[in-house]
């Protein structure tokens, strides 16, 4: 990680990448492709305890640290959800806890995925973002105050 690799730079990269797609089908195909690159969670994390609640599909989230940075591994049994998970991991993993906890994640709106952040969506992206921020907040030793709901 270089010093200039910030969450907002990663978001800008994703936005640029998604600007290539006009058609919903192309966009979802790309999301599914992103999911295929996700490494998944370690076997001991593939349990109910590490499952994100509120998803019609199953999502597992494995938090960890590398030095001062928070890292995430994640997985899902549904292809689109896995792609969305991969996007979130790509943007947030390996960033400082405080930055994760405070990230507004405006890129989801820019790439036309804001609807997926609605708490009523069955994919649980909102729950996942909340959970990532809670882990980050806990790891930064500041309790839950950084947990911004998506």
């Amino acid at each position: 990680m270089t010093a200039i690799d910030t969450i907002s730079q990663r978001e800008a990269e994703v936005v640029e990448e998604f600007a290539l797609f006009d058609e919903w089908l192309d966009k979802y195909e790309h999301i599914i492709e992103l999911g295929k690159s996700l490494s998944g969670v370690d076997p001991e994390f593939r349990t109910d305890h590490w499952k994100v609640k509120g998803c019609q599909s199953q999502v597992w989230l494995q938090p960890g640290t590398e030095g001062d940075l928070v890292v995430f591994k994640a997985d899902s049994d549904a292809a689109i959800t896995k792609g969305l998970v991969a996007l979130m991991v790509r943007v947030l993993s390996g960033q400082p806890a405080e930055a994760i906890a405070r990230a507004p994640l405006g890129f989801l709106e820019s790439i036309g995925l804001r609807e997926h952040l609605s708490p009523t969506r069955a994919n649980g992206l909102a729950s996942m973002v909340k959970q990532m921020k809670l882990y980050a907040a806990a790891m930064s030793g500041r309790g839950n105050e950084g947990g911004q709901d998506g």
């Binding site: 979802y28 599909s57 549904a78 069955a122």
Partner: peptide, 11 residues
């Protein structure tokens, strides 16, 4: 996954 199928059909 049924969820993926539902998402595509919705589109």
């Amino acid at each position: 996954h049924h969820y993926d199928a539902g998402m595509f059909l919705d589109q």
